[in-house]
Amino acid sequence: MKAVIYIISTVVLFILMSKLHKKYSYSFLLPIVTTTIVLIIALLLLNIPYDDYMEGGKWLQHLLGPAVVGLAYPLYNQRKLIMKYKYTIILGIFVAMLSGLVTIFAMLKIFKIKDSFILTALPKSITTPVAMQVSETISGIPSLTAVLVMIAGFVGALFGPLVFKVGKIKSPISRGISMGSASHGVGISKLKDFGEKDLSIGSLSMGVSAVMGAILCPLFVYLFF
């Protein structure tokens, strides 16, 4: 019974927060952020343990598997765009994934952060649902990974345009590739300001980088841990 209440309240809150975001489209009002914060406060105030909440939550989470499989639909639809710029897209995303992995790994090693946190941070450039499943595969902490992924997204949305200016990154294709493969969905929402082409290359890069990251992350872990 409790489980049903948890499911319904999560869904209802999410719908309300989505409406709020539609009305005022600030990125800090993204439903994922607001719903999570409100629910965390509710769990803490009502003294509900996380495991108890998950009795209901696990049913929602279970839909992530088929939802990620569903990413095949946009990827297949964009195959013509991929083929048109295949070298740039494949190599560009490869460079992005590699520099994301190497820089975060090097920094955390320098500060002597424990391995379980490093494994948690490695998938941070990948879109949340895939990142969490990668995190699980490489024995990171999926929920922490999800938070770091959100941070990576916001960094891209807020400072991405500045990085483009500093690096003189002017082509829509390279803007889309770098944002899509470093800051996933939250980052590419910012590409709307640049143009339609930036946006479609961005969402395509998000999908391709998720698949590539899901393969590269475990490989990286296998080589360096």
Partner: peptide, 11 residues
């Protein structure tokens, strides 16, 4: 997005 909210609460 709705499907990964339960996991995010894990923090």
């Amino acid at each position: 997005t709705l499907f990964f909210i339960p996991a995010m609460l894990g923090i």
